[in-house]
Measured scan of single mutants.
Amino acid sequence: MQIFVKTLTGKTITLEVEPSDTIENVKAKIQDKEGIPPDQQRLIFAGKQLEDGRTLSDYNIQKESTLHLVLR
Results as ranks from 00 to 15, higher is better:
residue 1 M to F: 13
residue 1 M to Q: 15
residue 1 M to H: 15
residue 2 Q to T: 11
residue 2 Q to Y: 11
residue 2 Q to C: 02
residue 3 I to Y: 01
residue 3 I to R: 00
residue 3 I to P: 00
residue 4 F to P: 01
residue 4 F to I: 06
residue 5 V to N: 00
residue 5 V to A: 04
residue 5 V to Q: 00
residue 5 V to W: 01
residue 5 V to Y: 03
residue 6 K to H: 14
residue 6 K to S: 06
residue 7 T to R: 04
residue 7 T to M: 05
residue 7 T to W: 15
residue 7 T to Y: 08
residue 8 L to I: 08
residue 8 L to R: 15
residue 9 T to K: 06
residue 9 T to F: 08
residue 9 T to R: 12
residue 9 T to D: 15
residue 10 G to L: 14
residue 10 G to Q: 06
residue 11 K to S: 10
residue 12 T to L: 11
residue 12 T to A: 07
residue 12 T to R: 05
residue 13 I to A: 03
residue 14 T to W: 14
residue 15 L to A: 02
residue 15 L to Q: 01
residue 16 E to L: 10
residue 16 E to T: 12
residue 16 E to D: 13
residue 16 E to S: 10
residue 16 E to P: 05
residue 17 V to P: 01
residue 17 V to G: 02
residue 17 V to F: 08
residue 17 V to M: 12
residue 17 V to N: 02
residue 18 E to S: 13
residue 18 E to C: 02
residue 18 E to Y: 11
residue 18 E to G: 11
residue 19 P to E: 12
residue 20 S to V: 15
residue 20 S to H: 14
residue 20 S to G: 04
residue 21 D to E: 11
residue 21 D to G: 15
residue 21 D to C: 02
residue 22 T to Y: 05
residue 22 T to D: 09
residue 22 T to I: 13
residue 23 I to A: 05
residue 23 I to V: 15
residue 23 I to D: 00
residue 23 I to K: 01
residue 23 I to F: 03
residue 24 E to C: 03
residue 24 E to L: 08
residue 24 E to T: 14
residue 24 E to N: 11
residue 25 N to W: 10
residue 25 N to P: 01
residue 25 N to F: 15
residue 25 N to C: 02
residue 26 V to P: 00
residue 26 V to H: 00
residue 26 V to D: 00
residue 27 K to P: 00
residue 27 K to V: 03
residue 27 K to Y: 09
residue 28 A to F: 15
residue 28 A to Y: 15
residue 29 K to W: 11
residue 30 I to E: 00
residue 30 I to H: 00
residue 32 D to R: 11
residue 32 D to F: 06
residue 32 D to G: 14
residue 33 K to H: 12
residue 33 K to F: 12
residue 33 K to T: 13
residue 33 K to C: 02
residue 34 E to F: 14
residue 34 E to P: 02
residue 34 E to G: 07
residue 35 G to Y: 04
residue 35 G to P: 07
residue 35 G to F: 08
residue 36 I to W: 11
residue 36 I to M: 06
residue 37 P to R: 09
residue 37 P to Y: 06
residue 37 P to C: 03
residue 38 P to V: 13
residue 39 D to H: 15
residue 39 D to M: 06
residue 39 D to V: 15
residue 39 D to F: 14
residue 39 D to T: 05
residue 39 D to L: 10
residue 40 Q to L: 04
residue 40 Q to D: 10
residue 40 Q to I: 04
residue 41 Q to C: 02
residue 42 R to Y: 15
residue 42 R to Q: 11
residue 42 R to P: 01
residue 42 R to G: 06
residue 42 R to K: 13
residue 43 L to Q: 00
residue 43 L to H: 01
residue 43 L to D: 00
residue 44 I to A: 07
residue 44 I to Q: 12
residue 44 I to Y: 10
residue 45 F to Y: 14
residue 45 F to K: 05
residue 46 A to V: 14
residue 46 A to T: 05
residue 46 A to I: 11
residue 46 A to L: 06
residue 46 A to R: 09
residue 47 G to C: 03
residue 48 K to Y: 12
residue 48 K to F: 07
residue 50 L to A: 02
residue 51 E to W: 14
residue 51 E to L: 15
residue 52 D to A: 07
residue 52 D to M: 13
residue 54 R to P: 15
residue 54 R to D: 04
residue 54 R to N: 07
residue 55 T to L: 15
residue 55 T to M: 04
residue 55 T to A: 10
residue 57 S to F: 07
residue 57 S to I: 07
residue 57 S to Y: 09
residue 58 D to K: 03
residue 58 D to F: 13
residue 58 D to S: 12
residue 58 D to C: 02
residue 59 Y to S: 08
residue 59 Y to I: 03
residue 59 Y to E: 05
residue 60 N to R: 08
residue 60 N to V: 07
residue 60 N to G: 06
residue 60 N to I: 11
residue 60 N to M: 07
residue 60 N to A: 09
residue 61 I to R: 00
residue 61 I to Q: 01
residue 61 I to A: 02
residue 62 Q to I: 08
residue 62 Q to L: 11
residue 63 K to A: 05
residue 63 K to R: 15
residue 64 E to N: 10
residue 64 E to V: 12
residue 64 E to Y: 10
residue 65 S to T: 11
residue 65 S to R: 03
residue 65 S to G: 10
residue 65 S to V: 07
residue 66 T to P: 03
residue 66 T to V: 15
residue 66 T to N: 03
residue 66 T to H: 13
residue 67 L to W: 01
residue 67 L to C: 01
residue 68 H to V: 08
residue 69 L to R: 01
residue 70 V to I: 08
residue 70 V to C: 03
residue 70 V to Y: 05
residue 70 V to S: 05
residue 71 L to P: 05
residue 71 L to S: 15
residue 72 R to E: 14
residue 72 R to C: 02
residue 72 R to D: 15
